[in-house]
Structures are given as C-alpha cells and as structure tokens.
Design a protein around this nucleic acid. Structure first.
Lengths: 115, 115
DNA sequence: TCAATGTTTCCATGATTATGGAAATGTAGC
DNA sequence: GCTACATTTCCATAATCATGGAAACATTGA
C-alpha cells in the first residue's frame, strides 16, 4: 500500500463522527447498515452522514451496496487488515515481540522497508 | 480507550510527514531515533519535525527520552496495539473471521460495545 | 562565561475541513 | 406522470491545520 493511501485511510478514521460510523459498521458485520439507519443510530443529519460516509468510501474503508432504494454500507475488512499490516510492517526490524495482541500482522509478511 | 483518544491517535498518524516519522520509529525499534536524525532522514526542517513529533507525542504514539543533549523518540508499541484492538473490537459481533492477518486483536479480547 | 549544537516556540500565511440548510437526484409504487 | 421516501450535491461559514523563517531555550564542553 502507498503511503498516501494509508494517510487517506487513517484520515478517514481520524474524525469522531466517521470513527463512530466505521465502528458501527465493523460491529454490524458484512451485511452492513443503510445510510438512514446509520444517521438515526448516531443522531446526525442525513447530509452530514452522506459527507462522512462518502469520505470513508473514497478512502476505501467502507463499501456501498445498493438494495432497493436503500444503500447499505459495510466495513471493508480486507482494507482494515492491510492498513494494520502497513502500520506494523517490519516492526522492530522484525526482531522484537512488540505487539502482543497484533502479532500476526508484523510477523507474517516482510516487505520493503521504504520509510 | 475513549473514542476521542483514538481519534487523536489516528489523526496523529493521518498526515504524510507524521506517518513517515512513525513508521521510521516503528522500524527503528525501542532505542528510537533523535530529532535531528529523523529530520535528516526525512529531509524536513527541524521546526517542522518538532511540530509533528510533538503532535505524535501528545497523542501518545511516540515516547521521548532525553539522552545528553539529544532527544530520542521511539514508537509507543502498546499504544499502537491498543489502537488496533479498538478498531477491530467486537468485529462482526465476534462471529466472523474478518481479519486474517490481524486475528489476535479481535478474538482475544471482548470489551463493551460503546460505539 | 562563551561558543556550538540540538531542539523547541513564536508568528504569519495559505490550505484544508466539518457542519447544516436548501435544493437536487435517484428509486419505488400507484 | 405523480407522490413519497432515501440519499446526495451545492453552498456558505467557522474552525482547524501544515509549513517555514526567525528567535528563544537547553545542554555540553572549553
């Protein structure tokens, strides 16, 4: 993953409303939640929700799926996985056991060390 | 971890210069790198580095350590671990196997589902 | 105390961002 | 075509942020 893409993904999560949306979708699972229901659940205006969920979608952190006149959004799990792998990539030159809870990401892949 | 703290941590990473700094430190390991060396490695002005590394430190993603007249910064690995756990918390209601590379974080701990 | 070096703070500027009201677009059913 | 509903786009405003020049502060050694 390119640094700019990672920044976009992180920026899409680095905002209270969007983080709430994303976590709601992460916990909702693959079926996702439609826009109006998200707005209701979080108590935000529909246009504000649209703005933020579009931000998340543009960054690739959520995926839209049309269903009738509803649009369901779901978390993009592979994208989150990739992002975490990028952050923890080549951790401690691959030597240390720095991330007890997240061990898998840093030890299963070795990439170029481009800072 | 509180949502605001997570947002601060994510925001501290959601910027090209800071992400480069952080990844440099993640790969450097616990000893860390002093401010001037980071600035040199990334080709940025010392005041700009100071601004960004302070941002990362305020968010708790890096830790400063005084050594002579140098200040070494190192990645705060537990903080990164907590952040990842927060993002993946209660993933798919704990049912799915959504995050192949990051399995540990979502399956080893069950927290409150505060969105 | 003085000089040299490492790091941070002060300040101004240009750029990006979040928010909501209002209007527009799209979709479904009659 | 018309109406109802779901969602998005347009627009303006206020707030936050990134950057670098210059000055200040801190630490070390003579």
């Amino acid at each position: 993953m390119k640094p700019e893409q990672s920044v976009d993904k992180l920026a899409s999560l680095a905002q209270v409303t969007r983080l709430r949306i994303f976590r709601l979708l992460v916990q909702a699972g693959p079926p996702g939640v439609n826009a109006g229901a998200i707005a209701d659940a979080l108590g935000i205006a529909p246009n504000t929700l649209s703005f933020h969920v579009a931000h998340l979608a543009r960054a690739g952190m959520v995926l839209p799926r049309q269903e009738g006149r509803f649009i369901f959004y779901s978390a993009n799990y592979p994208a989150m996985d990739e992002l975490i792998a990028y952050l923890t990539d080549n951790c401690c030159q691959g030597k240390g056991r720095c991330l007890p809870k997240t061990a898998a990401a840093s030890t299963t892949r070795r990439r170029r060390q481009a800072a």
